[in-house]
Design a binder for these strands. Structure first.
Lengths: 341, 341
DNA sequence: AGGGTTTTCCAAAGCGCTTTTATTTTTGCC
DNA sequence: GGCAAAAATAAAAGCGCTTTGGAAAACCCT
């Protein structure tokens, strides 16, 4: 069932039917209801490809996931972000396109996306420091919203981000106020902008309290469980072991917890953990009492907001760029306590 | 830069240029190279919408994720599956569309997808027992591959699945052979087909060894950490506590481990855990020595294979339906030991 | 050289929709 | 009742590509 058939069935022109369907005013109410009813009854749905070709809009948003060759990891945060964004798209009648792009031919990939015309805008994931994609996208004129920010990029662009620096400063300070002095940081990969900012926050808190920065207590890796485990195991074997860990992800924190147990130590009493918590649906941080003291910020919410932002940007480009800084909540759980003396 | 402009630039007709670009034989080698070179130089890329409209193919695959209203969870497995599939699509020049569909209006959604014409086929996620989507999709004639199977559906259809039943039978038997008798099952939601099959496998093993099935040791919930923790905590508080747990997910297993620690018990010595392991990139099950004894099956590989299967099905529909049963590997880790006497 | 093939290229139609422009019908007013 | 204006509908062009049905050019025989 296509427009032509529908219009023949109704004894109307395609024009009139199209207008009736799309809510244009130059069609009488009586025919409009008649058309709507027929469309409903005959189960008519416009072909989006044709519609897109005619209107120049694709009614789809692209999500570009950089896939680095060294790090095959799929960011676990991704599923929840997409879920949030998906809700927004569904409401707006937009489709979501996913594109995994090996980071070596990113430039090509974005130009490709632009030329293929399958999306009206894109969400940029995983920005790094001085991310060149931002300049590229501005240049080729494809609307976009960055999930995160990019330090050292001075162009104006739209983004939504958590206050990573503030959160980690606050979390570290929380530990310091509990009397901790040797505080380890198990960060994500620090060429990633979020991780870079988290380190800055951590360092700021230490500096503010006159604690010297000890690089032997700092790690930067992909945020897996095994990473947390190994790093903590190694650090806890030292004579001058850290009394607290700041983790970039609950998954890493779980690894740290494993190492703590294995070393015969007790969480919160002997060693504290504070972690960032993306509020992932399958990794709920406890129930009433959180397992981990955490800096919580729902990545699902961020996804939904990012999508809404992009959609409004596409509708009214002149209103951009837009930015939005979300604050993480510090929630006290059972993984922190006063520093062991 | 579109076809028309390119052809004018080359002083050729659109026909010839199109044919040269798409590898049709009725064009001389010399003009072909000339066209290819110009396309390259001028950075020409065909508009996919137009191409799709003309050919009737969308060059895109849809992934439909059912979003139940009660369970807001995003399956953590999803990211890795998508990553695997994405690789296959990238190779074939296909795009990937994601669609989150609330399960109440699924029928509508699939018809919609069909009519909108934005995809050439779909991957069905999260099949339940007697999944009605299979009949629906067969009826509307949209090529599809199910990730998993659906018990009680008798139509022929294409699927790729892990031998869940076999895996859980084997895992349970492994525990029995270690002397365990009170073996708990922390399963996923059992209206989901995979979970149903896992229970069958578990029950078969018990039955084969004359162990009676104790429903008080069986749970069926969404596979979160907190679920594993709560269930294990409750069961370990009994006088007749289980000596081993069979878990449907590493995440749940982590929750069980937490409960074991908290109860002052020692993993593998006092209580054993065996778990299914989807080989998620961010939840690696240890390194040389696996943390958990597990039934491992890479969901990423499944994603890639599912995508390839669907693509070949689209190319040659008469070759279908295809099916593929993957076997899970039993890997021995540090979470199992002989039953405490 | 001339007729038949084969090769190479092209004009035009068509994919299903929107939108511009044109035409017909209805309405409002004196 | 008649005319202009407004409302309703229609015809046709266009979005960027593929593909059908020819036509022109090149090639191959005898």
């Amino acid at each position: 069932m296509n427009l032509k058939q529908l219009s023949e069935h109704l004894n109307l022109s395609q024009t009139t039917v199209s207008r009736a369907l799309n809510g244009y005013p130059e069609v009488s109410e009586s025919t409009r209801t008649r058309v709507l009813k027929a469309a409903q009854d005959l189960n008519y749905r416009p072909n989006l490809r044709a519609k897109g070709l005619a209107t120049g809009r694709a009614l789809a948003i692209g999500h570009v996931i950089p896939v680095s060759n060294q790090h095959e990891m799929v960011n676990p945060v991704f599923g929840d972000f997409i879920a949030g964004a998906g809700e927004s798209y569904a409401r707006a009648g937009y489709d979501m396109m996913l594109k995994l792009v090996p980071d070596r031919d990113e430039t090509r990939a974005y130009e490709d996306i632009r030329a293929r015309g399958t999306v009206d805008g894109i969400i940029v994931h995983g920005p790094v420091i001085n991310d060149e994609r931002i300049a590229l996208l501005s240049r080729i004129g494809l609307p976009f919203v960055v999930h995160g920010r990019s330090t050292d990029v001075n162009l104006p662009y739209s983004w939504i981000d958590v206050n990573n620096r503030g959160a980690f400063e606050r979390g570290t300070q929380f530990l310091i106020e509990l009397g901790h002095k040797r505080i380890a940081l198990l960060n994500g990969l620090e060429h990633m902008d979020f991780a870079f900012r988290r380190r800055k926050g951590y360092e700021t808190a230490l500096r503010n309290h006159g604690i010297s920065i000890d690089t032997s207590l700092m790690r930067s890796e992909e945020m897996t469980e095994i990473y947390g485990y190994r790093a903590a195991k190694e650090m806890l074997a030292r004579s001058q072991k850290p009394t607290a860990f700041v983790c970039s992800s609950i998954i890493t924190a779980i690894g740290v917890r494993r190492a703590i147990h294995e070393a015969g130590l007790v969480l919160a009493r002997d060693v504290s953990i504070i972690t960032h918590d993306d509020a992932l649906s399958y990794l709920e941080n406890g129930d009433d009492v959180p397992i981990f003291t955490a800096l919580r910020s729902s990545v699902r919410y961020a996804g939904s907001e990012a999508a809404d932002m992009l959609l409004s940007l596409i509708a009214l480009p002149q209103k951009g760029p837009k930015t939005r800084l979300l604050e993480a909540d510090l929630i006290i759980g059972r993984s922190t306590g006063p520093a062991a003396t």
